[in-house]
């Protein structure tokens, strides 16, 4: 399924941050978002994932096909690695967590409590969650934070496999994943601040 953003404007806290974005993401491709801190990448991803409504324009073709991964991994410290993953697998109605554990080299840690993992291991578990969602469009916000070089390679391999299976990925990242991706720099789309509609801030 192809994801389209049509004339999309997104806002954070009632203030427009990006305007007039147009892009599409077809199966088997990945799109990497670039832009300085605070340029609105996270806001754009949250809008695409459906967590907040767009200020203007629309997103088509996403909906129930999107697997979203944020800065926070959504792990429960008092559940083990495999319990965390099994929970998301059953929420998304898929059963198999073994492939996901293997892809992110978590098999040896599967009985450890998630609270005792290192930051990089937690991130790997958070990314392994994407594989058990069984969804086609991955929307990832800085997925490689706190990963070492070997883990970044694992992640890139997982994305490559996902794309090979007809999936697609929208990734905000600053490092080169070694993937054949298109780049979208959001800087030219930054919204011009204007104090036009005072009521906007109270909505």
């Amino acid at each position: 399924m192809t994801l389209h953003a049509i004339d999309l404007s997104v806002s954070r806290g009632g203030v427009a941050v990006l305007e007039g974005l147009n892009f599409s993401l077809s199966p088997g491709t990945a799109l990497v978002l670039r832009g300085p801190n605070g340029s609105g990448k996270t806001t754009l991803l949250r809008t695409v994932a459906g967590l907040q409504p767009p200020l203007a324009g629309r997103v088509e073709g996403g909906g129930e096909e999107i697997a979203y991964a944020a800065h926070a991994d959504g792990l429960k410290a008092m559940l083990s690695v495999s319990e965390n993953l099994s929970f998301w697998a059953s929420v998304f109605g898929t059963g198999d967590i073994v492939a996901a554990l293997r892809a992110f080299d978590l098999e040896a840690l599967s009985d450890r409590l998630a609270g005792t993992l290192s930051a990089g291991q937690k991130r790997r578990l958070g990314l392994a969650r994407l594989m058990v969602t069984g969804r086609a469009i991955w929307v990832l916000d800085e997925p490689t934070v706190s990963l070492d070089a070997a883990s970044v390679e694992l992640f890139a391999a997982a994305v490559r496999t996902h794309l090979g299976q007809g999936g697609s990925a929208l990734i905000a990242t600053h490092i080169d994943l070694g993937l054949d991706t298109e780049l979208l720099d959001v800087t030219p789309f930054r919204a011009v601040w204007r104090a036009s509609d005072p009521d906007e801030a109270f909505l």
């Binding site: 949250r46 994932a49 459906g50 967590l51 129930e64 999107i66 697997a67 979203y68 991964a69 944020a70 800065h71 926070a72 991994d73 959504g74 792990l75 429960k76 410290a77 998301w88 929420v91 998304f92 109605g93 969650r129 969602t133």
Partner: peptide
């Protein structure tokens, strides 16, 4: 607790 560790965002995008 679910909001702090981010799982509420992820649940909101889950098919529930």
């Amino acid at each position: 607790l679910d909001w702090e560790d981010g799982s509420l965002d992820l649940l909101a995008t889950a098919p529930l």
